[in-house]
Design a protein around this nucleic acid. Structure first.
Length: 646
RNA sequence: GCUGUUGUAGCUCAGGGGUAGAGCACUUCCUUGGUAAGGAAGAGGUCGAGAGUUCAAUUCUCUUCAACAGCUCCA
């Protein structure tokens, strides 16, 4: 007998060769029906594979990330089976599970498919899923594997197999379909109850644009129709919240081909919103000891040669501009740090001066590839809420922790409550792409890991994701729809101080090199505002929203009183507008509601006579009448506490 | 940058080889109405741009620009 240890610590004994599925059945039939895969000794395997030695076991179902991934991977195989049935001779590239769903890259031999085809494929998948075919695993020799796919004339699979080692190759089959695959898979196709093929896209074989373009079909499956419906509803909601759509509707920003691609134009309301965010962070930064600085939009090319960025990114940047007489080369600044390094160097520093923290809302320009441009999230000109901290090596951790506090303050104020910290370290194998010494890298990586741990952040460590000059900590934020965004970033840099030969005089009266920390809680204002718009669906918190109050006179007769109210609100620093049109109150309300104005003040005879305002809250309705000081304090309380919209 | 889809009024979109249409928005007039659309009239478009085919192109073809989706990239 072998001992199987469950996640709760319980240990049960089974015959050697028992499968996770058998074990599930021994517990309950209901559980067995839900099992998609198993984690045995930490490794995800088929629930049907025999377990021969003592092991820890976790049964994976739909609620587990690995369970979902296994089902989606199996769904890709199911789709492949359907494709092979419908389009004989189709060749297959790769078909993995992705964050939401799966895809398969296929070569249809020049045949184009469209949305109608997706419906047909879906129907075929449904039909095949109903048969509840088992997934069976088979070890094959490299020679046999090559023979099988030579027979099928599938050059993609042959290329994949050629890269594999003999003895490690497995095939999985279900129904009439067999695929090269390392697995694992769900026990049978019957677990796949609801199927939706989402889209067709082109994708290069092995992600290389020199290779042939394959047809990629994206899909997603669920264990019930209800869950699929919920997912589709979520997508609808995401569409409604798209910042490009809301940005237009709420008159926040626009683009003009005449100005240039990826160069946002902020409209008055958007500029006002942006300005509030800047003021908010500027104030928090000054309280935290930051010193505002201002630097120009261009810089001598030499600056970027010194920093190393020219070598690394020069070819992919806006090209240098030249002075007409001397022919000197200047670049639109792609980053603020070299400028800040020069500010640091403008006066000698003592160890007593450190840390110094230079902050600037600095607009930078980067040449992003045409196809990458996307609303405000990917642009060619954007403003970073940038700051560079110069400190002694012994201050790194403390500074890092302070920055984390600042970032968390920002998130809390804007109602981002769900986030994780992604710590990006060097690639453990290939260290050639990084600038700087091993010793410095180790110090920096340690400081980040320790600070994150001390602040109790939920962290994920990613190797190979570090910038070329240093490790970093990025905040991954989940918005109201559960979508992940990378916002704030903190990066340690031992490189630029070296390149710019930054120094301070230590207590020992010798010259030392400071450490630099780059940080941006928002990242860029453009991107942050895009995420904020989608997070709150355009219903900004009162302290940020461009128009806080709309005053709606019932008829023209009450305009004088409306103006008096507007004046009083303005004195209280409340942003109010009057709807002066000769329209009926219902229409004025409707339009203010659609514009997502938080407070509407309905003003008519009763209010004018008694010096009151009738307050209506967006999406909530009539709150009744109150006097003006009461309304002012209602608004001010909400503003001061930076309450979310609802 | 690559592949695909799309491009008609300020916005959302219909149409289609014989020089254009709706709703909303806008302007004017009437209406002065109490919590999500009052009425009437009017104005507004080189049908993304360039070339070709045709007696005739907004419609067909090619090129180009842009947006969108995906891929590759992201200091």
């Amino acid at each position: 007998m072998i001992n199987i240890t469950f996640p709760d610590g319980a240990v049960r004994q089974y015959e050697p060769g028992v499968s996770a599925l058998d074990i599930a059945k021994s517990i309950s039939e209901g559980l067995a029906r839900k099992v998609l895969a198993a984690k045995v000794n930490g490794q995800v395997i088929d629930a049907t594979r025999p377990i021969t030695t003592d092991a820890t076991l976790q049964l994976l179902t739909w609620v587990d990330t690995d369970g979902k991934a296994t089902m989606w991977h199996s769904s890709a195989h199911l789709m492949a089976e359907a494709l092979e049935a419908l389009y004989p001779g189709v060749k297959f590239g790769i078909g993995p599970a992705i964050e939401t769903g799966f895809y398969y890259d296929i070569d249809l031999g020049g045949r184009a498919i469209g949305d109608e085809d997706l419906k047909k494929i879906e129907a075929k998948m449904q039909e095949l899923a109903k048969q509840n075919s088992s997934f069976t695993r088979k070890d094959v020799s490299k020679a046999d594997a090559l023979a099988y796919f030579t027979e099928k004339n599938d050059e993609y699979k042959l290329e994949l197999i050629n890269d594999l080692q003999d003895g490690t190759i497995t095939f999985y089959s279900q129904g009439n379909f067999t695929d090269l695959c390392r697995g694992p898979h769900i026990p049978g196709t019957g677990a796949i109850k609801a199927i939706k093929l989402m889209s067709i896209a082109g994708a290069y074989w092995r992600g290389n644009e020199k290779n042939k373009m394959l047809t990629r079909i994206y899909g997603v499956t669920f264990p019930s129709q209800k869950e699929l419906d919920e997912y589709l509803t979520l997508l609808e909601e995401a569409k409604k919240r798209d910042h490009r759509k809301l940005g237009k509707e709420l008159e926040l920003f626009t683009f003009s081909e005449n100005v240039g691609l990826g160069l946002p134009l902020w409209l008055p309301k958007g500029a006002m919103l942006r300005e509030r965010l800047v003021q908010f962070l500027q104030r928090a930064q000054i309280e935290s000891g930051y010193l505002p600085v201002v630097t120009p939009h261009i810089g001598n090319k030499k600056l970027y040669v010194t920093s190393g960025h020219y070598e690394k990114y020069g070819k992919d940047s806006f090209q240098p501009i030249h002075t007409p007489e001397e022919g000197e080369e200047f670049m639109l600044k792609p980053m603020n740090c070299p400028h800040h390094c020069e500010i640091y160097k403008s006066s000698p520093k003592s160890y007593k001066d450190l840390p110094v923290r230079f902050a600037e809302f600095g607009t930078v320009y980067r040449y992003e590839q045409h196809g990458e441009l996307h609303g405000l999230t990917r642009v060619r000109g954007f403003t970073q809420d940038d700051a560079h901290l110069f400190c002694r090596p012994d201050q790194v951790k403390e500074e890092f922790i302070k920055v984390i506090d600042l970032v968390l303050h920002v998130f809390k104020s804007l109602n981002f409550t769900d986030y994780t910290a992604q710590i990006s370290l060097r690639d453990q194998e290939d260290r050639s792409k990084y600038i700087g010494t091993d010793e410095n890298w180790n110090l920096a990586e340690q400081a980040i890991i320790e600070s994150a741990a001390e602040k109790g952040l939920k962290t994920v460590v990613e190797y190979g994701e570090a910038a070329f000059y240093g490790p970093k900590l990025d905040f991954m934020v989940k918005d109201a729809l559960g979508r992940k965004w990378q916002l704030g970033t903190i990066q340690v840099d031992y490189n630029l101080p070296e390149r710019f030969e930054l120094e301070y005089i230590g207590a020992d009266n010798l010259k030392h090199r400071p450490v630099m920390i780059h940080r941006a809680p928002f990242g860029s204002l453009e991107r942050f505002i895009a995420v904020l718009i989608e997070h709150c669906a355009g219903k900004f918190p009162l302290w940020l929203t461009p128009t806080q109050v709309k005053i709606l006179p019932i008829s023209d007769k009450f305009l004088p009183y409306a103006e008096k109210v507007a004046g009083l609100l303005k004195n209280a620093e409340i942003r109010a507008e009057i709807d002066e049109r000769s329209e009926k109150i219902g229409k004025k309300i409707r339009e203010a509601e659609l514009a997502k104005i938080p407070y509407m003040l309905v003003i008519g005879e009763k209010e004018a006579n008694e010096e009151l305002v009738s307050v209506r809250r967006q999406a909530k309705g009539d709150l009744g009448a109150m006097d003006i000081p009461a309304f002012v304090s209602l608004v001010q309380e909400e503003v001061v506490n930076r309450k979310p919209f609802e």
